[in-house]
């Protein structure tokens, strides 16, 4: 079936995007990603360990030629830090598709929209293709689209909370008025959460902890792959109407009792 995710000028068969953090080791990271079927993986930019130059690197296990690396700005609380981080990422990898995430506080890791807006403007001017993490505010999401972000990624719930889609109503409005891909980013806890996001009409789901934090991350990676596919199919198929009363599935005609 020809149903691909299109972001900027790139197309992907998988609508599941995964983070590469929080795994036990690089082997588990690699296996979980492969099992998830994801083609886009988010990565962070950090200092090298100057005293251990031969330490294994993520790129040894997750091949940047096979996966689209999506550098993110996790841990940034200001526009300045985010822009600085992504400029370095572009130099390190040569990619201009990036995930912008600027946070406001360490407890809720809530998106910091004033700083995110500032950073998005600078990055877009500088030639970056910005996938932006934000709150599930329909007006803001539209603003990000209008300023030139290539995808808008509202949270389902706070990062790492696993609460699922807390506000399906706003997610639905955001999707309804968007003409760039809308991906739910953060807050997914289990397979049904991912399926619900996709059934609402999201173009994709981005998650990390839901897989890495499961007791069996590899099995959860598979569950998420199937959930995203199932949710997408259900959305495209168009669900039946909800009704207050029962409707029999078997015909009344021909009854012999």
């Amino acid at each position: 079936m020809d149903d691909q995710l299109k972001v900027a000028d790139m197309t992907f068969n998988s609508r599941l995007l995964v983070g590469t953090g929080k795994y036990k080791d690089f082997e588990e990271t690699a296996l979980a990603i492969e099992t998830s079927g994801a083609q886009i993986v988010t990565v962070a930019v950090r200092r090298v360990n100057v005293s251990d130059p031969k330490a294994p690197m993520l790129t040894d296990f997750v091949d940047p030629k096979k996966y689209t690396y999506l550098p993110n700005t996790a841990g940034c609380f200001t526009a300045e830090d985010a822009v600085r981080t992504l400029r370095l990422a572009r130099e390190a990898g040569g990619w201009d598709l990036v995930k912008l995430e600027v946070l406001s506080d360490p407890k809720y890791l809530w998106p910091n929209n004033p700083e995110t807006l500032k950073a998005a403007e600078l990055l877009i001017k500088d030639g970056f293709k910005v996938m932006v993490y934000t709150t599930d505010d329909p007006y803001l999401c539209k603003l990000y689209e209008e300023m030139g972000c290539v995808a808008v990624m509202p949270l389902a719930a706070p990062i790492g909370s696993g609460l699922g889609v807390c506000n399906p109503y706003t997610i639905r409005i955001i999707i309804e008025q968007a003409s760039v891909p809308i991906l739910v980013d953060a807050g997914v806890g289990t397979a049904s959460d991912a399926a619900i996001a996709m059934e609402l009409g999201c173009d994709g789901v981005l998650m990390n902890t839901a897989i890495a934090g499961a007791k069996d991350p590899i099995r959860m990676a598979r569950a998420m792959k199937l959930a995203v596919e199932a949710g997408r199919d259900a959305f495209l198929a168009g669900r039946m109407e909800k009704k207050l009363y029962a409707t029999a599935s078997s015909p009344i005609d021909g009854k012999f009792f």
């Binding site: 983070g19 590469t20 929080k22 990271t29 962070a44």
Partner: peptide, 12 residues
């Protein structure tokens, strides 16, 4: 001078 590289990270 800052020398950086890609490490595992995500939506956390």
């Amino acid at each position: 001078i800052e020398i950086v590289h890609f490490i595992g990270g995500g939506a956390r």
